[in-house]
């Protein structure tokens, strides 16, 4: 926690709450994340991890509580504007634009990041700045080989990488990563994770990474949070957290 005092706070969530009837996926959670701080979030299915991320991106509205980005209240701000301000999320399942080429996928994100939503009459090929940036991102994420391929013809691993590349095109301040390795083979898993962590480090981003693979979690982060029934039940270094009895009980006992 000593990091927090040195670095400026990026996101603060204060007593967030979201109930769906009897189900309480997020129950009065408070969270502070500093710039450059990488957290991993673990917990059984239905513990409320995805709901928490969705609250932060604005996809769903909290029943109570507030969220601040760099001290500014953003609780009621819609998701697209939050994305522009730097809270960007990658998806657990495939979310890419199937009918477009890889280049166009990334280019769309670049246009959006540059705020060029309403430039109606300018040819996209003439937007040199954007195209250069897209090219650089394609190279950075090692997609040059499939640059002009249609995304629907590509494999799952590629789609994950494209998703991540689009998130980086948004120039994020904090990256919310929802199970980056689900449904990906063992080999690709490490490749994607390496790519992701390198980029997070290189850009000094803050990140919350939801991950099921505890070995990966141990390697990835200095700090991990265990979530259960809408509450944080443990927080600290992975080694410390995973040695606690109640954590083992929850993660292993519930068929993790």
């Amino acid at each position: 926690m000593s990091n927090n005092e040195q670095k400026p706070l990026l996101i603060t969530a204060d007593k967030l709450r979201k109930y769906y009837g009897e189900v309480k996926p997020v129950n009065d959670i408070s969270l502070e994340i500093a710039q450059g701080q990488v957290l991993t979030l673990v917990g059984a299915n239905g513990a409320g991890k995805t709901t928490l991320l969705n609250l932060l991106t604005g996809l769903i509205r909290p029943d109570r509580g507030e969220i601040r980005l760099l001290g500014e209240k953003i609780t009621g701000v819609p998701p697209d504007q939050r994305a522009k301000r730097g809270i960007v999320k990658t998806f657990q399942l495939e979310h890419v634009f199937d009918d477009m080429t890889v280049f166009d996928n990334v280019r769309t994100a670049c246009f959006s990041s540059a705020g060029k939503h309403y430039s109606l009459f300018k040819d996209i090929e003439d937007e040199n700045e954007i195209n250069e940036r897209t090219g650089a991102l394609i190279e950075l994420f090692d997609l040059t080989g499939v640059r002009d391929a249609f995304v629907r013809n590509l494999g799952h691993g590629y789609k994950k990488v494209i998703d991540i590349a689009m998130c980086f095109a948004m120039k994020p301040k904090i990256l919310l990563v929802d199970e980056p390795t689900s449904g990906v083979g063992e080999e690709e898993k490490y490749k994607i994770m390496d790519l992701l962590m390198n980029q997070i480090e290189a850009n000094n981003l803050a990140a919350i990474i939801v991950e099921h693979d505890l070995h990966l979690v141990k390697e990835l982060s200095k700090e991990t949070i265990v979530m259960c029934d809408g509450e944080f039940i443990a927080r600290g270094t992975p080694d410390h957290v995973f040695s606690q009895e109640k954590v083992i009980e929850i993660l292993v006992g519930k068929g993790f």
Binding site: T57, L59, P79, D80, Q81, A83, K84, V88, K89, F91, H95, V96, F97, D98, D99, M100, D104, N105, R107, T108, A109, F111, S112, S113, K116, H117, Y118, S119, L120, F121, K122, D123, I124, E125, E127, I130, D163, M166, C167, A169, M170
Partner: peptide, 27 residues
């Protein structure tokens, strides 16, 4: 011209995947 602009590129993105479009900041 409109069909070849960034506007229509983003509209196609919306048609392709609405959630993703929103999450990369498209209004």
């Amino acid at each position: 011209r409109v069909l070849n602009s960034s506007f229509s590129l983003q509209l196609r993105a919306i048609a392709g995947d609405l959630e993703k479009a929103e999450s990369i900041g498209i209004p």
